[in-house]
Computed example of a mutant assay.
Amino acid sequence: MKTIKTLTQEAIALLKSLIETPSLSSQEDKTALLIENWFSQNNIPFFRENNNVWAYAKHFDKAKPTLLLNSHHDTVKPNQGYTNNPFEAIVKDGKLFGLGSNDAGGCLVSLLATFVCFYAQENLSHNIVIVASAEEESSGENGLNSVLKHLPEIDCAIVGEPTLMQLAIAEKGLLVLDVIVKGTASHAAHTNEDNAIYKALDIIKWFKNYKFEKISDVLGPVKMTVTQFNAGSQHNVVPAECHLVIDIRVNDCYTNEEILKTVQKHTNAEIKPRTMHLKASSIPISHSLVQAGMALGRKTYGSPTLSDQSVLSCQSVKLGPGETLRSHSANEFIFITEIEEGIDLYIKILNAFLIVL
């Protein structure tokens, strides 16, 4: 049995390798191989579909509930502000720099180390399955959502995202709408009472001012934002259509379907949702998984950012080393001590949660 210190050192080494192996969303095949090698080196059987890799703890029992450990190994594209090589793992002043170090490589390797620690333990109250998922950053078809059909029913989950090891007990869902406002095309010199752009202004005003009645105790209100506007091709032609894109962050009081019906009711336009499955998630503060974290001094909060929680139907908590404000930033980094603390806290939380029968 490896010591926690050894597992931590190996996890940090794996993170360095992950950083130096490009894994843009939907192009994670080489980092999937690194994760396969991690399982092989620890004598753990694993499964893979596309670029998702998963494994079960040794003493799986169908009669027991199942805990999912999940984080992702894909990254966004490095932004133009980088002064470091985004694909070089650089350690400086206690920081490990590199693309994906904070989001969410540090979380992933910390969960992998934790899983190894519990892999062979017997008589636990829950089964454990870990999934290193792909395509999280792009909400792609071949990410965690595609793997769930292969897994047993999941009762609860820890989703590894940078939260400074605080407990995100709720997460807003995402609904993106393409809105087409139709009018009548005409020459700009002529009177036109059916100008698509003018009609769109009223719709934009509605999105700006409408307030959904239910406000979540943890996530606050639903937030709707017009993020794109496109119409017209030349100065003297009134266009027949105006196109809007609406970003809606949904709290845990509403389903995406309920939000869509409200929008359709109040807007005279063609509404096309890009996706409906990125739903809000939450877990009661009374849940034993949350209580285990709180007993270790962890605070609870609601997260406005999206993660693989959005495709889970079970109760889940978002928890991991690193800080969300560093995600997608230039010269992204995670503190080495954050990984050490992350592994330590994950293990302590699971020791409290996975009651030995």
Rank of each mutant, 00 (worst) to 15 (best):
M1Q: 10
K5F: 11
Q9H: 13
A11P: 03
L18T: 09
E20Q: 12
E20T: 09
P22Q: 07
P22N: 03
S23T: 10
D29H: 12
T31K: 02
A32Y: 05
L34V: 06
E36I: 14
N37A: 09
W38I: 05
F39M: 09
I44D: 00
I44T: 06
R48A: 07
N50G: 04
N52H: 07
V53K: 06
W54R: 11
A55C: 14
A55W: 03
A57V: 06
A57S: 15
P65R: 07
L67I: 13
L68S: 12
H72T: 06
V76F: 01
K77S: 15
Y82Q: 07
T83W: 08
F87H: 11
K92N: 15
D103R: 06
D103F: 05
L111I: 13
T114R: 02
T114M: 14
A120V: 03
Q121V: 08
N127R: 13
I130H: 05
A134Q: 10
E136R: 03
S139Y: 06
G140N: 05
E141G: 11
G143D: 09
L144D: 02
K149T: 14
K149W: 04
H150G: 09
E153W: 13
P162K: 04
L164N: 14
L167H: 05
I169E: 02
E171A: 04
L174H: 00
V176G: 01
I180M: 12
K182D: 15
G183V: 06
A188L: 11
T191D: 12
D194I: 08
I197R: 10
K199V: 12
K199C: 14
L201Y: 15
W206F: 13
K211T: 15
F212P: 00
D217G: 12
L219S: 01
P221W: 04
P221V: 04
T225M: 04
N230R: 15
N230V: 13
S233N: 06
N236A: 09
E241C: 12
H243W: 15
C253T: 01
T255S: 11
I259V: 10
K261C: 12
K261A: 14
T262C: 08
T262R: 07
V263W: 02
V263Y: 02
K265G: 07
K265V: 11
H266V: 13
T267D: 03
N268W: 08
P273C: 10
R274Q: 14
T275D: 15
M276C: 10
L278M: 08
L278H: 00
I285R: 14
S288L: 10
L289Q: 02
G293S: 04
G293C: 04
M294Y: 01
L296S: 12
L296Q: 07
K299L: 10
P304T: 10
L306I: 12
D308F: 03
S310K: 02
S310Y: 00
S310D: 05
L312F: 10
C314K: 06
S316G: 08
V317G: 08
G320D: 07
P321I: 03
P321A: 13
T324E: 13
R326D: 09
H328D: 07
S329V: 04
E332L: 03
I334R: 00
E340N: 10
G342W: 00
I343K: 00
Y346M: 13
I347W: 09
I349A: 04
F353L: 09
L354H: 01
I355D: 09
